[in-house]
Amino acid sequence: MRTAFVSQLIKEAEQHPDIFLIIGDLGFNVVEEFAKKFPDRFLNAGIAEQNMIGVAAGLAKEGYNVYVYSIANFPTLRCIEQIRYDVCYHNLSVKIVAVGAGYAYGSLGSSHHATEEMGMMRTIPDLVVASPGDPIEAKAITTLSANYQGPMYLRLGKAGEKQVHTTSFDNMMIGDIVALKQGSTGRSALLATGSILHYANEFISEKGIDTSLYSVPFIKPLNKQQIKELAQKHNNIIVLEEHQKSAGLGSAIIEQVSDMYASGEISVFPKIKRVAIDDCFYHLSGSQAFLRKNAGLVLHENMFE
């Protein structure tokens, strides 16, 4: 996903002279081409993430659309106050790009597991939180972000994620929930965000499960109309994400549905099952697949009944 992002960003930077890229002392074999093509719009801010976000806010205030690129928790949690106050409160065009969503950096351990940051980011007003499910979505969101004025968080996988979509997006809009499969009965719907989308898709195909499948590339804002339709159409919604249960996508959907139910917009409250990390850290070494399994990010056929 990081290559999908960077190669699209280079294309966008050719069109948009305001695009600026800051790295936090990483991106070896990833960002070189950008740095070479646009030396005046590239900066290595060193290993100093709080300063990096502040500087990005300053550049954005002077008219740049600034992309800040680092790993997992470093451009997010490490500098969350700069994000909240400098970037979001001033509504500046800073795009925070984190590679290594969830357990993508598996055996590197908890310092590199991005499993809480989505929840923290989605509580900050005016911040768009994007979590592409495959390289095609990553590319579309990169284009969208290049044309969007305002703060945004891009939660990317790492490298080698498989494609789920077969065609590219012409026009992705913020908040879009993307239908991938329609079940015949309309009873259950599986929603996934991030690169675990691929597993969701494989699982239902292999087991021949009759369910709808949606990719949710935006955790915030959620498209209320789409959520309403989903809740009205399905009485069993399963939400899969590589993140803590608390404050993740599943929680966000429950909140929305609950509000709609409380206000009378919907009359039935569907079952909503969250498949997410159950409030714990993992301190064992292992691949992303191993850690997902250990953390219980696994689908079962009976969930769809």
Partner: peptide
């Protein structure tokens, strides 16, 4: 897989005071 020896210093290893990596 499943080992305590992560690719960053882990305090689950005897003799290691604190985990680091950030």
């Amino acid at each position: 897989e499943g080992s305590f020896f992560l690719s960053h210093t882990s305090h689950y290893i005897p003799g290691v005071e604190v985990s680091s990596g950030s």
